[in-house]
């Protein structure tokens, strides 16, 4: 138990992040600094691109490529989105449910966790080609790779959250002879949510990585932004490559934004944010 805790704590450490309240009239302090960073970065990019056209494309080149063929980009975006959505949903669900069972039956954690750690430290890039051999070039290997990438952070964070209950509240429930299910429903499940959301915060960007890597391995056979990156890079079609990278980035940003929106609504009662690594 104590061994597991140190490991768990290392992965999911709690940090109370002071909620930033916006002072009236100081809104520019919020958006101006990052805006300047982006503008400077864009300018540097553009200058470098103009000087070295065979290294990176210009920003207007990327934008033009996107405008030229929105349908092609749209279809590939949706394919990757589908891989991320289904794969991540499966990995999140599996991670959380197995954490629930582990939290209830400690012996199971001791039995199965080492296997999960072994799977986790195996480079996913190495597993992906093997899965393609096993499942072909269809969507299945992409779902599996994405789910695998998401599974472990979800498992570890959920487990930490389900364990980290207020011991005094637990005492109250135990003197009431509350059942396991009632303790789960009243205390463990809602109490685990800050950790679950911390897990999601790591998992969702990882899911995009997983889907892209899976596509790299099966490039040329299937659509998707990752395939688009490898194909266009092989043809030295830099604007397409970078446009696809930008779209992968947009996908990640969209998922994370959506998540913090949901988090704000679901976890208003939690004062600090649980930061996961």
């Amino acid at each position: 138990m104590s061994e597991n805790m140190t490991e768990t704590e290392a992965v999911a450490s709690v940090a109370a992040v002071a909620t930033k309240r916006r002072k009236p009239g100081l809104g520019w302090r919020i958006w101006l600094p990052p805006a300047i960073t982006f503008i400077v970065f864009g300018a540097l990019w553009q200058v470098t691109a103009i000087a070295n056209p065979y290294v990176i494309p210009t920003i207007d080149g990327i934008v033009m490529s996107l405008i030229d063929d929105p349908q092609m980009y749209g279809i590939n975006f949706l394919v990757t989105l589908q891989e991320v959505a289904i794969g991540a949903a499966a990995g999140i669900l599996a991670g959380f449910l197995i954490a629930v069972v582990m939290a209830e039956f400690e012996i199971l954690e001791r039995a199965v966790m080492p296997l999960f750690v072994v799977i986790m430290v195996t480079p996913i890039v190495a597993i992906a080609p093997a899965l393609v051999v096993a499942f072909g070039f269809g969507m299945m290997p992409k779902y599996i790779v994405t789910a695998l990438v998401v599974f472990f952070p979800m498992l570890v964070n959920s487990l930490a959250g389900l364990r980290e209950v207020d011991p005094k509240a637990l005492d109250v429930l135990r003197t009431l002879h509350a059942s396991r299910w009632e303790i789960f429903r009243e205390l463990r499940f809602p109490g685990s949510m800050p950790f679950v959301f911390a897990g999601l915060r790591v998992s969702l960007p990882l899911a995009v990585v997983g889907a892209a890597v899976a596509e790299f391995v099966a490039a040329g056979q299937q659509a998707g932004l990752g395939s688009l990156v490898t194909i266009s890079a092989a043809q030295a079609n830099l604007p397409v490559t970078w446009a696809s990278i930008v779209l992968l980035c947009v996908l990640g940003v969209l998922l994370v934004s959506l998540l913090s929106l949901v988090r704000k609504r679901a976890l208003w009662w939690s004062d600090g944010e649980v930061v996961s690594r």
Binding site: D166, K168, D171, V172, T175, S270
Partner: peptide, 11 residues
């Protein structure tokens, strides 16, 4: 049981 801390459920 009334524990040392209120131990109310924040949600």
């Amino acid at each position: 049981l009334v524990p040392q801390a209120p131990a109310l459920l924040p949600w």
